[in-house]
Design a protein around this nucleic acid. Structure first.
Length: 568
RNA sequence: CGGGGUGUAGCGCAGCCUGGUUAGCGCACCUGCCUUGGGAGCAGGGGGUCGGUGGUUCGAAUCCACUCACCCCGACCA
């Protein structure tokens, strides 16, 4: 492609709206433009990247026997009503009516429609297994679109669905997807982790997420470098630091106006880990007292899995329910209130509120002075012990770039997707669902691979592999050599961009670096005097002067070398 | 949905507090000359309902009210 005729609107300055690095760079380098909040247009360069990623996804999905199909974005409400999600999902679903007043919605995911299709077409165990996928637009009316193309209201997603006769089949397809996903991310040049995740409202028992480490992410994962344990912090278990307890007698202590763990700890000369924090929440209009060690924090998802949606109690509710103001609440002496305590509190001698203003109690012993339901409630912190091997855990910020779920029969049952087994008995199909967000893969690639000059694309997903920079378009030999090189590379099937604009050299260098094409071929008068040109590696900035005759071979070799780390 | 912030030329910004002629600057854009190894130089030029509506005032980019849009933090994220 010729730069002079291409639509590559690079910006010298960063638009003020952009915050995330990938957002800034993709905007500046002319890959994307924003139409409205959470709605992005992919310009030619951006779309080329997306297509490269999608192509890799296709190849790997096809490789595990998945078949691509094309679905609709407009869905009739009935299908979603049958699974109940029409009612469970709130404002995040775009809803509309057709001209006859029939309720419709825009597809935010395709479990329902895929299952509807399976229900109609699959009858026998002989038809199974099937894996169908699509790479299509999804729409979600996100509460808060953010970070450029990382979280948008309209986005492309690869989602696949597996249909099996039994759990073994599901397990096989689940493993095949794990394999495919690992190959996809590796080929795309993304650093990633596979972590245990919360199946949440998708239903089913097992789920994993694929996470690209980046400070721009929205999730945190707990990782153990020694045994490989990895989980989203929403469910990660951890062993908090051990505490040496004092052998306190059970007694009330006067703690005037000291409310927070920090304040009381300083006042009494104790450690925060010697405390029991008592937090009052309201779930389903009933109070729940939650107990945590003073140096731990609540992981709200963990609590939600036990008691459902909840909210903190208001100040006056605390007094009304417990008879004491927040700050002096303790776990003992409450009747008829559900108490859930973090497991780490099973052992020890603690300080906590005395349920009396300006007093705390010392020498509080779990089981002896209060009883509770025990559960894992605390959030895993950096340095906590790994639940499997005890080594220190590492918490890292990540971008979610893929997820896989074992759905079981959550969708097949309500939609009547069944098959007859060899005995003629009817069973619901066992399903799995598997997603990848190609735009997030692109964003993660930029977040993970850039420098002060611009993007550094992994060669496998770069919009072009080579950019030729004829520095002086008025110089005949520069043009001749560049054009010849361009047609030779193009003939070899190498995606090549030639910057044939009559811009000055500096402009071309800046734009080439910004756009991030892995191999730059600099054709300048200086080198041409010796019949040589310069080949620069965008990432390492290494420059090599190469004779005109060897240029093609050198470039072909360089491409192979750059592809090396991303081959599987 | 709660909190914070920003809307002035394609992009980045100043002007607003303390109202007063044709609303400025840099970059980008157009023309010409010149230049061609890291976002050149000179000369000339085009481009604005100052987000919108209403109000205060002799007079509003500037003050007031409402409203819309976008960004950030949080909640949410099937």
């Amino acid at each position: 492609m010729r730069f002079s005729r291409a639509f590559i609107p690079t910006l010298r300055e960063t638009p003020a709206d952009a915050e995330a690095i990938s957002h800034k760079l993709l905007l500046r380098a002319g890959y994307i433009r924003q139409l409205a909040s959470g709605l992005y247009i992919f310009l030619p360069l951006g779309w080329r990247v997306m297509q490269k990623i999608n192509q890799i996804i296709r190849e790997e999905m096809n490789r595990i026997g998945a078949q691509e199909i094309f679905m609709t974005v407009l869905h009739p409400a009935e299908v979603w009503q049958k699974t109940g999600r029409w009612f469970e999902i709130g404002d995040e679903m775009f809803r509309l009516k057709d001209r006859t007043g029939r309720d419709m919605c825009l597809g935010m995911t395709h479990e329902e429609i895929m299952t509807w299709l399976a229900a109609r077409e699959i009858r026998s165990y002989r038809d199974l297994p099937q894996v169908w996928y699509q790479i299509q637009t999804k729409l979600r009316d996100e509460a808060r679109p953010k970070s450029g193309i990382m979280r948008t209201r309209e986005f492309i997603m690869k989602d696949s669905y597996s249909f099996d006769a039994d759990e073994e089949g599901l397990e096989r397809n689940y493993q095949l997807h794990i394999e495919a996903y690992r190959r996809i991310y590796t080929r795309c040049g993304i650093k990633f982790y596979q972590v245990e995740s919360d199946p949440g409202m998708m239903g089913g028992a097992t789920a994993h997420e694929f996470m690209a480490p980046s400070p721009a992410g929205e999730d945190d994962v707990a990782l153990c470098d020694s045994c490989g344990y990895s989980a989203n912090v929403e469910l990660a278990k951890s062993i908090p630091a051990e505490v040496r307890f004092n052998d306190w007698e059970f007694q009330e202590v006067y703690t005037p106006e000291k409310r927070t763990v920090q304040e009381v700890a300083e006042f009494l000369g104790a450690e925060p880990s010697h405390f029991i924090k008592s937090l009052l929440y309201i779930a389903d209009e009933k109070p729940v007292l939650v107990l945590l060690r003073g140096d731990q924090d609540l992981q709200e998802r963990k609590l939600e899995r036990i008691i459902g949606p909840f909210r903190p109690a208001h100040r006056d509710e605390v007094i009304e329910i417990l008879g004491v103001e927040a700050g002096f609440i303790g776990p003992h002496g409450h009747d008829g209130i559900r108490i859930i305590a973090d497991e780490v509190l099973k052992e020890g001698v603690y300080i906590s509120g005395a349920n009396k203003k300006d007093y705390h109690v010392k020498g509080l012993k779990p089981q002896e002075h209060f009883s509770a339901e025990w559960a894992d409630l605390h959030i895993a912190k950096d340095g906590d012990g790994c639940p499997k091997c005890g080594s220190p855990l590492r918490i890292e910020r990540v971008i979610e770039i893929g997820n896989i779920f074992k759905l079981g029969t959550k969708y097949s049952e309500p939609l009547g997707a069944t098959f007859l087994d060899a005995q003629g008995k009817e069973h619901p199909i066992i399903m799995g669902s598997y997603g990848i967000g190609p735009a997030r893969v692109a964003a993660a690639a930029v977040e993970q691979s850039h420098d002060e000059d611009g993007i550094i694309w992994p060669i496998t997903i770069a919009p072009f592999t080579v950019i030729i920079l004829p520095l002086n378009m008025n110089h005949d030999k520069t043009r001749e050599v560049s054009e010849k090189l361009y047609s030779e590379l193009t003939r070899k099937g190498i995606d090549t961009l030639i910057d044939d604009r009559s811009e000055r050299a500096g402009v071309k260098f800046k734009d080439a670096d910004l756009i991030g094409i892995p191999i730059q071929v600099v054709v300048g008068e200086r080198g041409l005097k010796e019949n040589r040109l310069e080949i620069k590696d965008r990432k390492t900035k290494h420059r090599e002067m190469v004779g005109l005759d060897e240029a093609i071979d050198y470039i072909v070799k360089a491409i192979e070398d750059l592809k090396g780390p991303f081959s599987v």
